[in-house]
Design a protein around this nucleic acid. Structure first.
Lengths: 227, 227
DNA sequence: TTCATGGTTCGATCCTAGCCGAACCATGCA
DNA sequence: TGCATGGTTCGGCTAGGATCGAACCATGAA
């Protein structure tokens, strides 16, 4: 016994409501200040400062100091994955927050997952893309086919990836609500940005919910789902 | 804020040392009694009973009552994944238990991961298997090729899967030490059992470490790694 | 029936850690 | 140089929860 990584330490860190709120918020927005996070978690500045120090110390988040602001973000993709994993188990075991049940349908339909789209729409779109052969599955990875590259460029999604970045171009991400995969990685992120820019959808304030406009959803379905 | 699954609840549950010990132990052995778990976690029967009740209530573990014994096991594969995810982050951020550093090298080399082999040897073997075309990668899954099926049967690994089981025949599992994949799923489990049966290796008592005999490791390397 | 063993329930204790008030440091703007 | 704002540090309060002793229930063996 007592071998291996000390999982209780990091789990305990996430096991506090305020800190879980912080991490969940950082999964949606890329960078938030301490005061914003205090508002989200519903605690005072002193308290949030203590929590952020602990998360920093543990290596779960990172900071960018800009002027007198400090922008916090998740330390890495593995943390985001861990959080999604937690959500999956919490969801299966019925540990859902009651206070927000009205908003849950919207959350299941479309939400932000770190930097890309998740939810029913995202899952359906990803499966349609696979059917059309936009991606080829390699061993642990997904790769863009010529057809896929052309299709994305036609919609105005930039699929060229900076050479220095070691980030995979496309990846799959398991959806906790649907229990099926959706598109992540560089292309997933670029696609979401494109949808914002085209006015198809926007982020709901203080939430991970992505709201589609009527025309936006229609366009989305035509481009991705119709077949 | 406050939307979606209540991750803090399940994280807090894992965030206690005794409960983390329980879950880690259950990742290795399939089923353990309350008293055994009390020994592993280093607490009394009363205490372990309370912890087990909480884990049961939260749906992280399940019980089989047999006579006056109660055998506990993880509630599902998603819990095992969550734990491996946690180990990955804990490992990256340097949260390793100091007391057991002597045993860590053995743990990194070969250990049990729920029901299959993990660690350096497992990763190397899996990559060699891929190179030889024993598996074909589909979208989210791995499938056994004809060559793979023949190869496994030649070693005496039963790759026939009960039709009723919805368990994937083969799956990949991310190794927290190596940060690369190893073989999981039905074939992974069958392979580990075969290695036990052949006397190549055995489980170290009260630990996830898998100890290879000299001949066992030699045979393993010849069958899987040599090329 | 009696005894040993596995497991649970209850109550009391004790300690950790989250929280806030107050004071303090640092940055940027006027 | 002042002043407002973002953020941290310190100290004390409090609550939740982990722990164990003791008593209790259930099962199986003698």
């Amino acid at each position: 016994m007592k071998d291996g990584p000390h999982i209780a330490r990091v789990a305990a860190l996430i096991g506090d409501n305020a800190r879980a709120d912080i991490l969940t918020a950082l999964m949606a927005d890329r960078a938030l200040t301490a005061t914003e996070l205090a508002g989200i978690a519903g605690v005072t500045k002193q308290t949030i400062s203590g929590h952020l120090a602990k998360l920093l110390d543990a290596g779960l988040i990172e900071v960018d100091a800009q002027g007198r602001h400090r922008y916090f973000r998740l330390a890495g993709r593995d943390v985001a994955h861990l959080l999604e994993s937690l959500m999956g188990v919490a969801f299966r075991t019925g540990a859902v927050r009651l206070r927000s049940s009205p908003r849950e349908p919207a959350l299941r339909k479309a939400r932000v997952c770190y930097d890309h789209l998740a939810g029913e729409l995202a899952v359906a779109a990803f499966e349609a893309m696979l059917m059309r052969g936009w991606f080829a599955a390699r061993v642990g990875e997904l790769s863009l086919t010529g057809a896929g590259r052309a299709a994305f460029e036609a919609i105005g999604v930039d699929v060229s990836v900076p050479g220095s970045s070691r980030r995979p171009v496309c990846r799959m991400c398991l959806d906790w609500g649907e229990r099926r995969h959706h598109l992540a990685g560089g292309v997933g992120a670029a696609l979401l940005q494109r949808m914002y820019a085209a006015g198809w959808a926007h982020r709901q304030k203080d939430s991970r919910v992505v709201v589609f406009s009527a025309e936006g959803e229609k366009a989305f379905r035509e481009v991705f789902l119709l077949d």
